[in-house]
Design a binder for these strands. Structure first.
Lengths: 183, 183
DNA sequence: GGTTTTATCGCCTTCAGTGCCACAAGTCAA
DNA sequence: TTGACTTGTGGCACTGAAGGCGATAAAACC
């Protein structure tokens, strides 16, 4: 169902596809679509709750001795590891999310929960609250690193996603100091 | 005109205020609003082009000898320095942008240009292209720092905006290493 | 079997956003 | 002064997302 919509968006374009089109294609009522998706925008996100659970799980199993940024980087990379068969669909999703303005904008709302997971993790590590400046900043910054990596991956299909994520997170941990990261 | 809309959004709420309401309040046609603003969302952004120009200008006058992250931090702080009289309106704008979902989402689109300015600056410094992973990551990360600081400022009106920005950017430059930043 | 959920979906409304067009006001030029 | 051209205004009608309401059908429960 989400797949079907994703396919239509990919073929005809997101704005060019109306909910009417999707409902007709699925042989269901337009109204019923809203029982499964909160909005048209939400249709491109697959099992995002699963992504959150997975990130939370990966963070939870990191050794408390591992440095914060190492644990974060490893957990993000692990939680973004997919079997090869899953990559084409992921690429379609991410291409839409990073290129269609309405979806780019909407991602801000969906990713708030993702940032929250990171902030919560940082807060526990630092003995702070997730609403404090440091954990919150890290939540935003981690999302920044992920977004930059995904955007690059979408634009350069030959490059490896996990390598890009690794580079982006190392860059972040190096404080973007040119002397501290190797190109 | 933007002021008037801002005031209505602030008083009645963004979603509760229709374009009809604003047009009527201004004594102009609803259609005419669209000659001045691309969308309802855009009405809360004041002179954002000015903000971009200012950031670009501040970045341009930094010494080439200053470390990248120091130059960036100083430029962002300088470009966010406002006279006290301007702060209440800024706070109103930022409160709306950081709390109303539609505006939160839309900010992603508006801030793309801001990220571009930072990426361009980083690209020049590093002898890279603004589309490369490093400059782009820094663009996203800088926006992350600014957003975290602004969000915190909105939630904690007594704290000083420039101090928060300073802390967020130092955190970023320190690679979020707990050993390298002082609480 | 009857009752209570739960799912489906049609109808109607609101509102943002857009195209089209008419009208008015101002600018410029001869 | 007049005619041509530009620019601002805004009415009208349309599309499409979103959401409220309620009727009907299907499924689950007792």
């Amino acid at each position: 169902m989400g797949r079907f919509a994703l396919g239509m968006f990919d073929e005809r374009g997101f704005e060019q596809t109306t909910l009417e089109d999707i409902a007709r294609g699925l042989g269901i009522g337009r109204r019923t679509l809203f029982r499964y998706f909160a909005s048209k925008n939400d249709m491109v996100w697959g099992d995002f709750d699963g992504v959150l659970r997975r990130l939370r799980g990966e963070l939870a199993i990191r050794s408390p001795d591992a440095p914060l940024m190492d644990a974060l980087r490893d957990a993000v990379i692990a939680s973004n590891t997919y079997p090869d068969e899953a990559l084409p669909e992921l690429r379609t999703r991410m291409t839409l999310i990073t290129t269609v303005p309405a979806l780019q904008a909407h991602s801000m709302l969906r990713y708030a929960a993702w940032r929250g997971v990171v902030a919560q993790f940082a807060a526990e590590r630092l003995g702070a609250s997730a609403e404090d400046l440091v954990p919150r900043s890290l939540g935003y910054a981690a999302l920044a690193a992920s977004t930059a990596a995904f955007t690059h991956w979408v634009e350069h299909p030959r490059e490896d996603l996990l390598t890009l994520l690794d580079r982006a997170y190392r860059l972040l941990a190096a404080g973007f100091d040119p002397a501290r990261f190797q190109r």
